[in-house]
Nucleic acid binder design. Structure first.
Lengths: 220, 220
DNA sequence: CGACAACCTGACCAGGCGGTAAAACCACGT
DNA sequence: ACGTGGTTTTACCGCCTGGTCAGGTTGTCG
């Protein structure tokens, strides 16, 4: 058996193919990605790919899930911190990646991610996968916001809508950095979020009480 | 002669090719765009394209400029309005297109635009064109902001940085609508911009004294 | 050992791709 | 009428692509 042993197994090979696909995709881009390119990045024979995956389409679909799995697995945040700190950490992680100085591979991953993302409009299955991922990211921010609101640290905004707003900004900054080469985009986005959103959330003199005392509870 | 007359000329044909390219690109997407697809959308023979353009690459480059020219030509804003109104109008135009109810072709154009945009990372020339366009859009917003600041309507923020922030948000909303099919994204972005940015700009009591929004209390 | 299944390879292919060659068309000036 | 130069079409091609297939290698169990 090779379920956990070290011998060359199907699972190992499939993982190697995924990494080869990543390298090829990173080099050539989605449009110019040939099966042969993946084969060249792959230590074994090109046709072996066809043994493990049913054609190019199946391979790309599997790769998409592989990439997103990696992305979500890399998120590490101290959830015991106060809401503002956690929110800040999540935003930074989205903008700059999990490691802060050594990992330049982060942007290679992002490059591939965004390339697949922009192709999602042409593939219903891919769109669904990205939608789920998008929701995951947004919800993680929504939850921090809600916690902050509950604890009275943030003013009572619509958490989900605000989280969506922040998520959009993060995506835009990444896209601009990748497509246009604006290396400063993530840093700019960070400043904007702080100046316009976080500062607004924290406004202490805005705290409840004043305008809408009767609105909340009475309902109908 | 046909320099300004109505007879079929080279310029007419080239324009027809551009429109055929648009249709083909809209149908098949950039990845699956074959010269033959353009030929099918084109009223004349497929190979005629090769007479007017030096290969696929040249054609796409010309098409990119064609699309951006159209985009910039479609911007219509009353520059005599007060800064807030003009800013609002510009944002709406970016988010919803020049016409507000009849034009569903707007999103077809945007779809193609964003597809080319995401491909810009692989082509230096294209990246440059998009960069210029990006700057054009951002500057138009920067100028309104500066005017508003001069007139005392807006608080004195860094106009360019804020304009960049707004531009990013617009792009993100469009990308999300197109790639993920979120039809509500532009409307959400609009609300977010109003709630967090415009309202902040208008704050009359913008207290300059404590620009720090106070990260807890440790600060610097 | 021998057999069976899983894994891997090199040689090969049919189809479709972008692109070209040369002939036909057409509106002119002479 | 006829040639001329820009335009358009028809017929065609070489190349490269994703994919297949028969056969080899490895590992495992009766």
């Amino acid at each position: 058996m090779n379920s956990s042993g070290g011998s060359r197994s199907s699972a190992d090979t499939r993982e190697a193919i995924m990494e080869a696909t990543f390298r090829a995709l990173s080099k050539h881009g989605y449009n110019d990605l040939r099966m042969r390119d993946i084969g060249e990045e792959f230590e074994m024979s090109r046709t072996l790919i066809h043994y493990h995956y049913d054609g190019k389409h199946d391979l790309i679909s599997a790769f998409l899930e592989y990439v997103i799995e990696q992305y979500e697995g890399s998120v590490e945040v101290d959830e015991d911190a106060d809401p503002l700190t956690e929110l800040d950490a999540r935003i930074d992680q989205c903008l700059f990646g999990p490691e802060f100085d050594t990992d330049f591979g982060h942007w290679e991953r992002m490059k591939v991610y965004h390339e697949l993302f922009s192709q999602a409009q042409h593939n219903e299955r891919h769109r669904e996968v990205f939608n789920n991922h998008y929701v995951t990211i947004r919800d993680s921010i929504t939850q921090v916001l809600e916690r902050g609101i509950d604890e009275g640290v943030f003013r009572p905004v619509d958490a989900e809508e605000t989280a969506q707003f922040v998520t959009d900004i993060i995506h835009a900054a990444r896209a601009r950095r990748i497509s246009l080469g604006h290396d400063e985009a993530p840093e700019q986005a960070r400043r904007g979020i702080h100046e316009y959103i976080l500062s607004s959330l924290l406004k202490p003199e805005f705290v409840v009480s004043s305008q809408r005392t009767g609105r909340n509870r009475s309902g109908e």
